[in-house]
Amino acid sequence: MIVAEQKPLEEIKSLIADYQNVLVVGCGTCVTVCFAGGEKEAGILASSLRMATKLDGNTKQVDHLVVQRQCEWEYIDPIKEQVDKADIVLSIGCGIGVQALVERFPDAIVVPGLNTTFLGLPTEQGIWEERCAACGECILGLTGGICPIARCAKQLLNGPCGGSQNGMCEINPDTPCAWQLIYDKLESQGRLELIMEIFPSKDWSNSRDGGPRKITREDLRLAAEETE
């Protein structure tokens, strides 16, 4: 899932400072499960902003709503009326949700209430950890299912480096060394020969270095949209 966390209230207040009617738009998917931008968080943020702006002597009208998925047109089209009425939209979806609202409602001023942080999973309730860097060329099949791109601070393909101490990374004693994890996993599965394979330089053009990425599936496209 996409993991995000709320920006400090002070920063959010400065983003909406010049506008009177604020619409907080939450998202019912990833940011709901990571407790950053769901129904409950949208309600708390709207209430907090109403109270904070009242105390500042600049009372704002702050309403909130949540769409099931802020990153798909069919879910955000129905909120057009509320978006049109608002002076500013405070999205607490991920960065994709913010941009989807901007693209769908060209006249609306949309600002983010969250910092979209990483692609990860909850390792236990209340703790989220990064697992994928969306590098566009998955090598998990060769690394025992443990990603050195997302989990090694240096994104090494032929690790570990000298900073691996007692199985932990030098950047933080609480961060396991990804290459130690890979070694242990391959050893326990009797596949240690895989670690002897030297990875050539990675083609980063599949990742962010190649610019914004796009996937087109002709078999899925609708004839009506193709002609547009």
Binding site: P8, L9, E10, I44, S48, M51, A52, L55, D56
Partner: peptide, 8 residues
């Protein structure tokens, strides 16, 4: 903490 951020 939230209340402190709000100013209460």
């Amino acid at each position: 903490q939230t209340l402190s951020e709000i100013g209460m």
